[in-house]
Each structure stands twice: as C-alpha cells, then as structure tokens.
Design a protein around this nucleic acid. Structure first.
Lengths: 200, 200
DNA sequence: CAAGTAACTGTAATTATATACAGTTACAAG
DNA sequence: CTTGTAACTGTATATAATTACAGTTACTTG
C-alpha cells in the first residue's frame, strides 16, 4: 500500500468507523455529508485515489461496493509454518501459511508456532504426516525430548539425545535411521521443542 | 430469536455466506437471483420474516441495509469430556472437565467436544493414551471412519465398518480384538465421528 | 514556468435498489 | 370451512447511489 495523504488517511479512518458502526460500507453521499463536501464527485475521486493506493477496493456498478484491504495483522492464534526453505530462519514471514485459532497457552510451556509434519519418521510417537506440531521456541533441549532441529539447513523433527559433543537424533520409526552428529564437525541448531500436536 | 422455517434458515445461511464473500450485505435482487425467485417481493417478504423473528435487522430506505443479529454465543472453546460414567449421555454437564481455548471451526466438520482417550487401542492411527480427540456429534458414520461409539453403556473409540446388520469396530492395534456387533442383538449407538486430535 | 496532482464545486444522467400493491397456491390449526 | 401464514409471482415506482463530464484552486516538482 502506497502512502496516503493526511486527508486520505482521515477519510479511510472515517470509512472504517462507519463500517464498524453500521455494518455496511458508506455511500458517496454519506462520505460527502460527513466530510462536508458539496459534490459527490469529491467523494468519488477520494475513493478512486484510495483504490489507486491500494487502501480499498471498489466494486463498480455496485452500491456501497467498497472493500477494505486488510493489513496482514497478527490475530490471536498461532502461525502455521509450512515448508521451510533451506538456509532460512524458521519463523520467516514467508513461511507462514496461516494463523490457526489456537491459544498458545493450551500447551505447556506455551507454543510459539505450529509446524506441519513431513514424513513418517516419528510414527510410533503418534506423529503422522500432515499433523501440526506445536513448538516452543528454545535453544536448549533435554535428553529424550522431541525437538525441531536444523542440521545443515535441513529442518527435522526427532527425539534428542546428547552426551558431551555427541548428539543422536532418533526417529520413532524403525524404518528410519538414527542420525549421529558430532557438534565439532557439523552445525546443529535446536529450533524448539515439541509441546503438543494438532490433527485437523 | 424465534425458530426459523427451513427455507428461512437456508436464506439466512446464504446471507451469511454472501457477506463473508463480498464484505457487504446482499440486495433483494441478489437474493432473488440466488434463490431463483422471479419477484423481488419474495426476497423482501423473506427479509421481513427474518426481521420479525429477530434473525436480522433491516434499515429502511438504505441500500443493503441488512444487519445480522449476533447470537449470544457460548464460551468460545470446546468442552473437554473426561471419563464418561456408564449409562449416561456423553454430553452430560457432569462430564465436562474444562473448556479448552480451541475454535470448533479449526476442524471440518466442526468439532462439538473433546474426549480424552483411554487405552492404546488406536495406537497405529497415531492416537495415544491421554490425547484429546475432537468429535463431531453425528449419528451416522461412513465405513472406515474413526467413531465414538457406545456399546451397552460403554463408550469406546474405534474404526467403524458396517454391512447390513453387522458392525465391526476395529482397533488400530493388533494387540486388541475386533469387536463384532449384531445390531439386532446388541444396542450400538454412534455418538460422533473423530474430526481431529490434540496432544497438549 | 509548465505540468502534474490533491482537493475540491456543480450538474446531470443512468442504473441500482427498496418497497408498495395486488394477487396465487399450499398447508396447518381452530 | 374459515382464518392465518409461508412462500411465492408480477408490476410499478420512487428514491438511493454510482458515475461521467466540465471546471477551479492551490501546491509541488522537474
């Protein structure tokens, strides 16, 4: 959205207020009356300007055909992370598929985001492909916890075991191999620990 | 709000959908087109009826002057059902352990309540002891669906298969037996179907 | 200083929309 | 059997609303 002039901001604000009050968008004439315009064309051209700048959308030929273009707001809920591209931070906005209406406090410790599970490597822990796991963002994990780990730009969900410099990432599925990591040789980052699961 | 006729419910539903889609209430003519009316007065009188029954409000002289009257909605969240005592309806208030902050619409079809899982009989379906399953309350189930069933006062979660009078309730765990029911001999009630799962 | 743009006035025409009035059909209840 | 109501058809009309066209004024920018 382009920057609005002061007057345009004022008008956009009024439209928002009108819609909150009346449940429907205003007409050109209502805008005239509110702003003190004597010409409906003043309203019209303001609306056109707002549309040009991406603040609203106009549906032509339709009475009250004004749509607010929503700002990407943070709803109370948890961001759902889909596929994570290699080498990018997990919480990059680009990865957010949607916000799910789930209270973070449902989980203990609180969940920070949801991650869609790919593959069946944690099948025996009751984690299936397509499930959403709730993740608490933390850098430290206890032995035996299920963690979201990043191993050389690859994000994976495994059970975490550490002894000194040696870490083992265990799948909960005999068909998958245990991953052994020597922290001195390969970079391993804990992104968070699993605190819950949603299957929708 | 008074009770609506089937047709009125249908129309109210359509209005809701229209508003969700377009961001503005519909006109009488739009309602006509959608419902197949040939007369705008059909739309008008339906709207009047809906207003009389308190489902909507009409603002006279104003285009698209239709306001939805909000239902006093329940505590947003889903009731969590713990142990169900034998012989009692599953949704008895006495069984409600708590309300969990989860939107029913997270699941499709919508969830009506959560049920705590006891036992490991559905282990291979990724359903573990202590998990909460989201249940859509319905009396009909399709073959293969995971259902909440009541068999002689006992509530159980199993996969449902039916052929005529014979029903099989399959666990997803080879350690548990398949339960066979002849509907003529034993009473079996479907309480609902599983639509999701929460592990907190 | 010319050109572009924001922010308007003023008028007019067309179309979108609400809404009244006069009926019809079917069904349920007293 | 009448009365009431839901669910419409069909016509008509006033008014609500959009939108085009022709201007004006002030300010900013190359």
């Amino acid at each position: 959205m382009q920057e609005l002039t002061l007057r345009q901001q004022e008008i956009l604000l009024w439209i928002r207020q009108y819609m909150a009050d009346h449940g429907i968008p205003p007409t050109r004439l209502a805008l005239c009356a509110a702003m003190g315009f004597r010409s409906p064309n003043a309203a019209e051209s303001h609306l056109r300007a707002l549309e040009r700048k991406g603040a609203i959308e106009l549906v032509q030929g339709v009475s009250r055909g004004i749509r607010l273009v929503e700002e990407p707001k943070e709803t109370s809920g948890l961001p759902l992370i889909g596929k994570v591209a290699a080498g990018q931070p997990i919480l990059a906005v680009a990865h957010i598929e949607s916000y799910e209406p789930i209270a973070p406090e449902l989980f203990r410790p609180v969940a920070h985001y949801l991650l869609r599970v790919q593959g069946e490597s944690m099948r025996n822990a009751g984690i299936l492909e397509g499930d959403l796991i709730a993740v608490h963002h933390t850098l430290i994990a206890q032995n035996g916890q299920i963690v979201v780990a990043r191993l050389e730009d690859e994000v994976t969900i495994k059970r975490f075991y550490r002894q000194g410099e040696r870490v083992e990432l265990h799948p909960d599925n005999p068909d998958y191999p245990v991953i052994e990591v020597n922290l001195k040789k390969r970079a391993l980052h804990i992104e968070g620990v699993m605190v819950g699961l949603i299957r929708a």
